[in-house]
Design a binder for these strands. Structure first.
Lengths: 338, 338
DNA sequence: GTCAAAACTGTGACCGGTCACAGTTCTATC
DNA sequence: GATAGAACTGTGACCGGTCACAGTTTTGAC
């Protein structure tokens, strides 16, 4: 302990007030924008803050104001899927950035196991955060109920199945996007088009399949549909199943880039050339798309915009504004896999 | 608004006390373990908590106890590198899991830009978290100084250059690991072994090169070393540079799997077969290693253990315990790229 | 020179918990 | 049946801010 300048307890607003020769109230005013305080007083306080090394105590402030200036980024996936999906990372990065610009903090909450569910419910109930960014939600998720019950402001990414109108959402038009992807394959002349879907209890899992089916119309063959869970491994497994059931398959639409990447691996091992023998299109444009050989054609989701819109909406609701939902467009990115 | 049970303000400990017919103190005791309270009183309080829907207010508790029951997961990389590196995700997941088991919360802080640096310093200064998990630190990082200055308990991942003894750390033996990787290539009979290093101002960037050089001894050729920044793109660029400078290169050791993956892409495009023409070994075993074709031989870092040790050490320091550092072993995982 | 409004400042109450301490009841022991 | 100690309970002070309000000074218009 050669250096012991940390010996004393942290300075409080009273210490600063004393040092500056003013009252607590004046110091508080300076901290919060400095309106209605004389230049002299402000200068003295600024100086005192510097010399004392003062930081406003977060807990005390929260207690007094009822605001915490932080929001939760809530993931409800089982752990092993969480970070496998680059989608989350993109949203996380975007949200963190957007929030930090507004001097708010992102608290990452993971509610994978039932045990964690109660932890999280407790945490949110304790008023630890001002709002919640709900990232992935499966149908009839119990957490959704308790979120609605506690009344904490929430914005969902994608429209939670069964709770379409319970909270503001930011989403892409799944059906239109899926139709665009499917049409792209049709226009390329593919005849036997398969699909690897996401879980049926997620909006992306359900509605991308709807779009796929709608676009194919009479050519839709339920035998060419295989479910996955968005992970690369599940994409590989699904592709293997499809290949076995329908060796003549000449194109596949995967509901995520990860699954598309898994599918590509299987196809290559099976001796198929991409796109000559089988075309592959993914969904997300998650950065992974470029690392696959060949680079994936995919439906680009505007993640930057999604996270920024989510934060914007959430803050608006927190401030007491009325809630509304936003739908953003996707775009087809053609690369070498089709 | 068909259901409006959320109308009234949240119940406080006083409401619970009143409902249970006991005092605030007794309620507080029940919440915190229930010692020294009669079974009758405890039952009444438990019941009252349920009927009122009470949750202890986090801010009030923090203010009174001086603890926040949350720790920061602090990243200091520029944004674009952050989530490209799967390493972070692994550590994040591990830490979140470990903390949630102890009913603590993980707060993700990103300090990429200088502006974010001051935000973060402020946040930490405000006592918002009980401790900090410092993930990636470049030499002479200003944030490091302010961390040390504010005296907030911190545990670093990897030994921060220039601050070796200023805080507890959890790390792997970089030099030994790099020697093991290099020896593997030598034992395979490779003669012209190159290396793609990490940034020289990070411990992994510096010491993995040291190990590489030590192991090669007189066979070390500085011409076969090219720096990267751990990203896939930088790995590709470095590999291209090496290939141009030394077309006879027959093996390459990359300081991360991401860079190895980038290198593999370039090698394949250059018509090199892996491992017949050029062997590639990575570092991390980050999950990416398995997605590369061929699957990467790599040095496995025990991320699960690293994050769990970090959390353990940090909590120990927070509780006032003495600090110590931990070094964990890596292991060679041989796959098809060597 | 008067007076009202604007600009500035200080004070006490309050946010919702925890904690130390004092007070009460219950048990066990001699 | 007195007494010590353990088990249990309630009270007031306190954590460190914010806020409403009251009080003081300055400004400007007539």
């Amino acid at each position: 302990m050669e250096t012991t300048p940390t010996s004393k307890r942290k300075p409080t607003i009273r210490d600063v007030a004393a040092a500056a020769g003013v009252s607590r109230g004046t110091v508080s005013r300076v901290i919060n924008g400095g309106h209605w305080v004389s230049p002299d007083a402000k200068a003295a306080v600024d100086q005192a803050i510097k010399t004392t090394g003062y930081y406003a105590n977060a807990a005390a402030r929260s207690l007094a104001t009822g605001r915490s200036n932080s929001v939760a980024f809530l993931l409800t996936e089982p752990q092993h899927l969480l970070f496998a999906d680059p989608t989350f990372s993109l949203l996380l990065r975007g949200a963190a950035q957007e929030l930090s610009q507004r001097h708010m903090t992102l608290v990452l909450l993971v509610a994978g196991t039932p045990e964690e569910h109660v932890n999280v419910a407790q945490y949110l109930g304790a008023g630890h955060v001002d709002g919640v960014l709900l990232i992935s939600s499966h149908e009839s998720d119990p957490l959704l109920e308790s979120l609605i019950a506690t009344g904490v402001p929430t914005v969902a990414c994608g429209i939670p199945l069964g709770h379409a109108s319970d909270m503001p959402t930011v989403s892409v038009d799944e059906i239109v996007s899926a139709r665009t992807a499917t049409r792209h394959l049709v226009e390329r002349g593919n005849q036997r088009i398969g699909m690897i879907t996401g879980p049926a209890d997620t909006p992306g899992g359900r509605y991308r399949l709807v779009g796929f089916r709608e676009e194919l119309g009479d050519n839709f063959d339920p035998n060419l549909v295989e479910p996955g869970d968005y992970s690369m491994a599940s994409g590989a497994a699904a592709m293997a199943a499809l290949l076995e059931r329908a060796p003549d398959i000449d194109a596949v639409f995967a509901a995520s880039d990860s699954m598309a990447a898994g599918a590509v691996g299987v196809l290559r091992k099976a001796g198929k050339r991409i796109p000559e023998d089988v075309s592959v299109i993914g969904f997300d444009d998650s950065g992974l798309a470029l690392t696959v050989e060949p680079p994936l054609t995919t439906m680009r989701q505007p993640f930057e915009q999604i996270s920024s819109e989510m934060v914007g909406l959430l803050l608006h609701v927190i401030e007491g504004g009325t809630s509304k939902s936003v739908t953003l467009p996707t775009s087809l990115v053609v690369r070498d896999s089709t």
